[in-house]
Write a protein that binds this DNA or RNA. Structure first.
Length: 466
RNA sequence: GUUCCCAUCGUCUAGCGGUUAGGACAUCGCCCUUUCAAGGCGGCAACACGGGUUCAAGUCCCGUUGGGAACGCCA
């Protein structure tokens, strides 16, 4: 039977990192097996669902390049079908009406807690002969099995058992007639032909309740794979407190999708000692069965490292397109493009890359630079001499190609018995406004003779005013 | 409180009864070097604890401890 999986977020906020990983695992499993990856928007909570959130989810998935195979299913639109199933179950005696008020339910939970029992509905109306109170809209509850135990083989968690006495009679249909999550997922998963449910392990206990609902409906029960949640650096479930960002925000922070995918993939899954894994390779290797059972902590450093790696691997044109909107000026952007090979070696994020390119766009402000002590200490009396000599070199260079610049400056330093580093430091500051930059020979070449001379001259005259 | 899940370097992990317990990130040192990165080499660094089973346990079993999750007319 061909595999059909789904990613089913509720649109109550952005797509967070954990959701992104769940989506990735579903997607990889579908691609690995040649099955289908479907999307379902669980928007039955009308209060909390929003169009913005729906858009954010779509945008994030698109950014991560996790494409889905059929138009997304919107759960709320299927409410009638869900209700129909609930009423059928009532007719068959597998579900029943419950007239308890909120207060009564709260009391039940409090009582249960006090008696050392899990806080649950006590099944009051399950077999109640009492005539229903007037003026109260009942909810429909599922008759969960009360004896025996349920054993399910989860693809990630292994064999998981639960005493049926732990199950309570969950609400299927609310008093206003709308379906609850428990009902909707089961009906939709069945109707969509889902064969494998891959989701966060916060749903592990739901699996048991849903299992019995599948059985009551006489439907095939899908395979389950409950993957561990991602935790923050302190070990607790990732939340806003940890700076848990939406996928969109990682994009804004300058991460690129392939590094996100690679990072997320390695959280809870490994293929021997492989760290850098292309998406093609991941599709070939990935299987949900191999996902670990212990939760992983989110580590920004590793993501950053991976991002740097993939930036270095990227085509210059692509990087240029990515940083173009971030550049402070649209003059001289051709220099940024020309200098990309040197720039991309040094950036961990797209934003860093854009920042590091700024000296190509405009001349350094020596006012600011010279107020920085770490630059001042790199300059001394001889710096002025070197800058003057550097001016001469710039004038004399014939072809002004990187190779020529390189050998010319090297031999000059050799003749003068000057350390290359000592000679280049003031030039670097004059040209880039920083003591950190790509190879200076590349910078000189990209900037061109005129601009280089202009910058050095400006630096010299500023130096003299000190 | 109850139920379920988890437990190898700081972090992500490899390991699937016999290993000098491997890799990666981070960190530290050295090399390379025009700065910074990148790269190369090396260092520090882990089987939570206690019982079993076994000739042999990081690996299997049971406890303990510690973490996490779930217990809604949320999803």
């Amino acid at each position: 039977m061909p595999v059909v999986v789904r990613f089913a977020p509720s649109p109550t906020g952005y797509l967070h990192i954990g959701g992104a990983r769940t989506a990735l695992f579903n997607w990889l499993y579908a691609r690995h097996t040649g099955g289908k990856f479907l999307l379902r928007i669980e928007d039955t909570d009308r209060e909390r669902s929003s169009q913005e959130a729906i858009n954010a989810i779509f945008d994030s998935l698109k950014w991560l390049e996790l494409d889905w195979d059929e138009p997304p299913v919107f759960q709320f639109a299927r409410a009638n079908r869900h209700a129909e199933v609930a009423h059928k179950l009532v007719k068959e005696g597998l579900a029943y009406r419950c007239y308890c008020s909120k207060e009564e339910l709260e009391q039940m939970r409090a009582d249960a807690m006090a008696n050392g029992l899990p806080p649950r509905y006590n099944g009051y109306w399950r077999n109640c002969e009492e005539t229903p109170p007037k003026g109260i809209n009942p909810v429909i509850r599922f008759k969960a099995p009360q004896v025996g135990k349920t054993i399910i083989n989860d693809m990630v968690q292994g064999t998981v058992e639960l005493e049926n006495s732990q199950l309570d009679d969950m609400v299927l249909l609310r008093a206003d007639g709308t379906p609850t999550y428990m009902l909707s997922v089961v009906v939709d998963d069945h109707d969509m032909g889902i064969t494998h449910v891959i989701r966060g392990d916060d749903h592990l206990t739901n699996m048991f309740r849903q299992y019995h609902l599948f059985k009551a409906c006489k439907w095939a029960v899908p395979e389950f794979a409950h993957i561990p949640l991602i935790h923050g650096a302190d070990g607790a479930k990732l939340s806003k407190r940890h700076g848990a960002l939406g996928a969109e925000q990682y994009k804004e922070a300058g991460f690129i999708p392939e590094s996100m995918r690679n990072y997320l993939l390695r959280l809870g899954w490994a293929h021997g000692n492989d760290e850098i894994i292309s998406t093609q390779q991941a599709i070939e290797w990935f299987d949900v069965c191999d996902v670990g059972r212990s939760p992983a902590r989110f580590d920004l450093q590793k993501l950053l490292n991976l991002n740097g790696h993939y930036i270095r691997q990227s085509e210059n044109q692509r990087l240029f397109d990515l940083i173009y909107p971030l550049l402070k000026s649209d003059k001289f952007t051709d220099r940024v493009f020309s200098g990309m090979t040197g720039l991309k070696q040094r950036a961990k994020t797209i934003n860093e890359l854009a920042d590091s390119a700024s000296f190509y766009l405009e001349r350094p402000s020596f006012d600011e630079i010279f107020s920085e002590t770490n630059l001042q200490t790199r300059l001394n009396e001889s710096s002025l001499v070197y800058l003057a000599q550097f001016m001469e070199i710039l004038r004399k260079l014939v072809t002004f190609k990187e190779g020529e610049i390189d050998s010319f400056i090297r031999s000059f330093c050799k003749e003068q018995c000057v350390k290359l580093n000592d000679f280049l430091t003031p030039a670097r500051i004059a040209l880039t406004g920083s003591h950190v930059s790509p190879s200076l020979f590349e910078v000189i070449n990209v900037l061109g003779r005129e601009e280089c001379m202009g910058r050095v001259e400006a630096c010299i005259s500023y130096f003299k005013t000190l």
